[in-house]
Design a protein around this nucleic acid. Sequence first.
RNA 1: GGACAAUUAGCUCAGUUGGUUAGAGCACAGCAUUCACAUUGCUGGGGUCACUGGUUCGAAUCCAGUAUUGUCCACCA
Length: 1066
Amino acid sequence: MNENNIPKTYDAKEWENELYSKWEESGLFNPDICIKKNITDETKPTFSIVLPPPNVTGTLHAGHAAMLAIEDTIVRYHRMKGDRTLWIPGTDHAAVATQSKVENILWKEEQKTRFDLGREEFLKRIETFAQQSHDTIVHQTKKMGASLDWSREAYTLDEKRSLSVRTAFKKMYDDGLIYRGYRVVNWTIKGQSTCSDDEVVTIERQAKLYTFRYSKNFPIAIATTRPETKLGDTAIAVHPDDERYKKYIGQTFTADVGSAKPLAIKIIADESVDPAFGTGAVGVTPAHSHADFEMRERHPEIDLIQVIDTDGTMTAEAGQDYAHLTTLEAREKFVLWLRENDLIEKEEDITQNVGTSDRYEDVLEIIPMRQWFVAVNKEFDHSGKKTTLKQLMREAVGPGKITLLPERFSKTYFHWIDNLRDWCISRQIWFGHRIPVWYCLSCKKERINATVKSRWFFVRHGETDWNKKEINAGTTDIPLNETGREQARLTAEKLAAENIGVIFSSHLSRAHETAKIIGKKIGVDEIIIDDRLQERNMGKAEGLSYSETKKRFPDLQKYNGKSANNESYEEAENRIWKAVSEHLEKHSHKNVLITSHGAVLRALWRKIQGVTPESIMNIKRFPNATPLSIDILKPCEYCGHHFFEQDPDTLDTWFSSGLWTFSTLGWPDENAVDFKNYHPTSLLETGYDILFFWVARMILMTEYLLDTHPFDTIYLHGLVRDEQGRKMSKSLGNVIDPLTVSEKYGADALRMALISGSTPGNDLRLSDEKIVMMRNFTNKLWNLARYVGTMTEKTNTPPEPKTDADQYLIKKLHAIVRDITRHLERYELSLAAEELREFTWGDFADWYVEVHKVEKNDALLRYAFDKILKLWHPFMPFVTEAIHQTFHFDTNEFLMIAKWPEFDTTKLEIATENRFELVKGLISTIRNVRAAYHIDPAQKMTVSAFGESEQTLRGNEEIFKRLARIDKLQTLKSAVAPKNTLRVQYGLLSAFLHLDGVVDIAKERARFTKEKDEKEKYIATLEAKLSNKNFIERAKKEIIETKHGKLKESQKQLLDIKNHLASLQN
RNA sequence: GGACAAUUAGCUCAGUUGGUUAGAGCACAGCAUUCACAUUGCUGGGGUCACUGGUUCGAAUCCAGUAUUGUCCACCA
């Protein structure tokens, strides 16, 4: 290899993309291929991690980069070790997070809300956005060097994960753990959705606390910051022992505050009330407070009155003065009323904590609603014993079960479980897994996780001129107008993806043409004309305007009205029902479009819903060319109808994320190969900020569904902050973009900066400076390779030690391999990286390479460097692989799959001289002890030793016995130190003696890893320096050229060294 | 209000089960430069390990308390 061809600096950009593609093409990220290529085999242990799926909300940030760096390091280590190693990539649809992001963009760019676009179109926008985010994320992930098995990539919203979600939902529903209940939920007005307790972000704000009475003679005053909610008060709670109020407990007082009905306030006793706070009485608003709702569960006799609506205005229950006002307007008005009636006793300014929505950032309202919940406290039968989900979660973590790193987080975990309420899993947002529940349109009964046979669409024709002029057409054949045709085309677009097989249409041209326009656009040629789908015959009313008809034939709007010699709703309904039923028998497996007319569809819709004939006019009119979709299922087991509609809500995103460790491995197919091989996974590595959101839910789901743990160990990394310790945020402009950084300094430098100097659970400050330092190190490694690769001969001689320095290096190398391996096994990445860096830079580069320049031992140098390179690979995959590809120190095709270095404990034994020194030290100790405690120097003693010192002592037992006057050398294991013992420290050893006269000497822990051969190393360096001709010549020159006859410091040092060496030789 | 953490050199941080003289990088000072590497090397200064007690032969490390900072949780109406 010609030195000149190799650049002096390592240029990450030159290598990274190319190397990643090569790795990827090799397929070696996939354990199946590693088995095929004999890098591992079926007898080897498995090691698996699922990547915490990044949200498809944009791009990766520094936190993701840390996650990737940590996980990839661990994964690469295990792969090199020969484990069957699997790391699965994926992304998270992240429901609310993504939806709110797209909604914000939509509002900013087009001033539209999701309701303006409609469900289908809005979802399309989100999917486009999600796809782009996904691509960016994958690109960034690859840039970091992450050795993920892309062939197994998953998405929380794809078909397979969807199946897992439905399966899990059904099982929980069947076990009674998922229920639909009327409870108070956190509601974001802006997002028009619920959110779970964990998604609530409490912020501090200024508020006014009003103390008032409901009426002049009301016996108890209460305080509130939300006076308008008091219109929904139904009780006052006081402490049971509160003497002031005891006499009122159980009584009900009424007060007219302007709400729809006068308030009936019952005085109840509840332990949760703090009698010392405020007036010692709490106004209870069960509809708009979690605490008060729970209070009502304890006191079911009190009422619940909802005064705030989902749009943030007051309901009718609040009274006609307040209905439809915003909460703020209502508050002002109510306060004014209180003031006018002289009911306010106190107004004070306080700071208050309020809950806001994590994603929409508006203050949440607490509103009672019918929602889906997971019951965490409900007992159920689990593998033969009674338990609750809470209990399952609690029992999963602890010694011998799931290990948390750092361990202290288990405390917060348990605390969180203890305070857990039922988990609200339904969301009114559109992006996410639809709740797999269908309601029979006729009898309203639920069906879970149903198979949809087909979807049927009912469309009223597009607009005609008569529609526009509000004239009855009936059987009169009025064609579509231009607007009508356009409407049909738009409808076709909406239906394009619905895979419609057949179209049935009324023969009347306005319907038929609508069908034709749609059919052409969605590629359905066959349009079956069925006269029974035609419009209601309006008899004499055809051609009359709506208002005229109303005047002349008022009974036409009735179910049986026939005064215009017309067809009644009843007759029309029967014929269309017959037609639809017939078609259903033949075509229920196909998606079907039916184009028909307003009145008959309305009649049909009434029939399907099974409401009384009299309420026909309460059925909403069908607008022109707007599809109504109905799911066709197996007939309802209660009423026999086929028509169902799915719950419009979606699931909390964490419901699907909770299944991630096994939904990615093939579950619900419990025989899936991956599932059998790789579950439970070995490690979960994620930020501590989602311990509750995600980790806890995975534990819940896995314990419940599979009766096992999702992972053995949880490694929680900290938040990545900027150099001043602030959270990275766009508004502060301090965001470190991993992509920019890795382009500038290389991915390896970024990885190292994120790993070293960081410990699990603690936040990490990332600065440019730190990254530069690591970039410098990658360059150091590169140049080491240049030296070792070009300055040494390739040799096949085994690396035999020739000098003390060689000996030291070998010993140190084995110690390093042992330490790094041990650190990696314990997930102590930072320690591993630091220690390895110190060894590489301090020992190998700055010391041994210098030695090598004098005492050439090429075989050993190459041998050592090869080991170092392999140890570095998991941390810095690119530069190490680049070196490998350039210099080929090892024969493997890729360093990535090179065998992890092993160490030999016998090589770690300390040298004889050092042992001797150790013994000498111990003897002095004994002498000191004898002197200090006036023990007869002639008296013999028992000496006890531990650990590595024991070995040392045994090796020199005879000398030791003689010199130290002992009669017995004993072995003690730690913990044995008797109470009445004095211990005296000397050097490396600590000795202790019993006060009863017999002296024991023991060494509790000797640390030999850093022992005295530092000295060896020092001498070797000096020798090397001094025998380096250049060095001597330079020094001489310096001395001669020195002006003023004064030696510079450095020269003095040189002389010192010389003298020192001379004294050593004597 | 509760819980958890942090406090080590001018700055950013390691220090994993109590043990030689408490470490690293940056910054600072001095020196070196045909050398694999200036993205370099050598040398040096700089620390009462927040404070006060306790346990121990021995404490940055364990215990108790105090102070400051931060994070999370909580129904103070």
